[in-house]
Design a protein around this nucleic acid. Structure first.
Lengths: 187, 187
DNA sequence: CTAATACTAGAAGAAATATTCTAATATATA
DNA sequence: TATATATTAGAATATTTCTTCTAGTATTAG
């Protein structure tokens, strides 16, 4: 087994999210300062700065996607509020998922293996949304807006600094219903 | 008067927006490469990299805010669709306004004079929204969501790469109505 | 035309960032 | 306990990025 890490992956990922949202960039120095790990340790565990960033993104988005897909099996409205719920349940991951651009994690230097996993995650999300749209006979852009873009816009008002209030969910549900109803009518 | 610039401010601002959204950061090198201006020229005209970034942000947000406030005088729905409309009318500025974080423009090294202007712009926006909420007897968070967060989330699906379709507006209007109606009922 | 003015040019220097490297340390398993 | 193994440490190096500087250029106003 060998010596165990003194700082967990989760703590590392959280530090990356913090650095990225507070300072706008996650330099090696910033991550090292926040966590207390040494530079050598970081490179040993993640291979490179880009490797750590990619893993941070995968960890957050995979976790969210699971919640989202489970909710989607229930109803459109459940899927819409999956985003604010996730923000309350897992604030560190939510910050990475909602406040960071993909380009900040997926750069030219990203290890190919991680790059493939990221592509797979994106494909998976797209597939689920497409399938839902077809089943409900709704245009794809309306589904994307109601279940993804509006909930994301809603929580981004609060993140990264403040907590997402439970009162938001009722509004998000109403917006979701309204968009899908409009889509059905204009079809 | 002296010698006129070969590259306009607008071209400079557009280059900053492009660099920021494509590459995730606007380095001096990236800006210089895109526009063809020399490093010395950039520093002469804007004082510093941070100065250029701050001016880019001010240019975009001031321009948007004017559209938004004019629309708000008409109706809530008009204000909600001001965002997608602005994206179609002024795509370069829209990218800066919608796709970039404030922290990327307003950093520790930002010239104080520009920092003040940025604060003033933010205060102005907040004041207009607060005033509207009071006049319509609506909770401030619902107004913020319906008029700002949802429209922003909606257009961010498309920016920076694709154009914002006109078909989005009907959905945004519907979402805006739904949120405000919900806010009135739960009051 | 001359002077004042703003802009252009890019090399040189300064500062911040990323990465590598060698040696040491702690833990699990046999 | 001995050994293999994953982790830690941080100085040294390489790389990128920002800023300054001096000399030169184009344009307007007098």
């Amino acid at each position: 087994m060998g010596r165990p890490s003194t700082v967990s992956d989760d703590e590392m990922f959280a530090a990356v999210g913090q650095a990225l949202t507070e300072h706008g960039a996650a330099s090696v120095q910033a991550i090292v300062d926040r966590t207390g790990v040494s530079v050598g340790s970081l490179y040993h565990r993640y291979g490179s700065r880009e490797g750590l960033l990619a893993q941070t993104w995968i960890d957050a988005v995979e976790s969210f996607q699971q919640c989202f897909v489970d909710a989607l099996a229930q109803s459109a409205e459940a899927a819409a509020v999956a985003t604010p719920r996730f923000c309350r349940a897992e604030p560190e991951r939510a910050v990475v998922m909602a406040c960071c651009r993909r380009s900040e994690f997926l750069a030219v230097g990203t290890p190919p293996a991680l790059k493939q996993r990221i592509d797979a995650i994106n494909d998976d999300a797209a597939t689920h949304l497409r399938r839902f749209a077809r089943r409900e006979k709704l245009p794809k852009d309306a589904v994307q807006l109601a279940l993804v873009a509006i909930p994301l816009g809603a929580v981004r008002q609060y993140l990264p600094a403040r907590a997402v209030p439970a009162s938001l969910d009722e509004y998000v549900r109403a917006a979701c219903r309204a968009v899908l109803r409009t889509a059905r009518q204009t079809r």
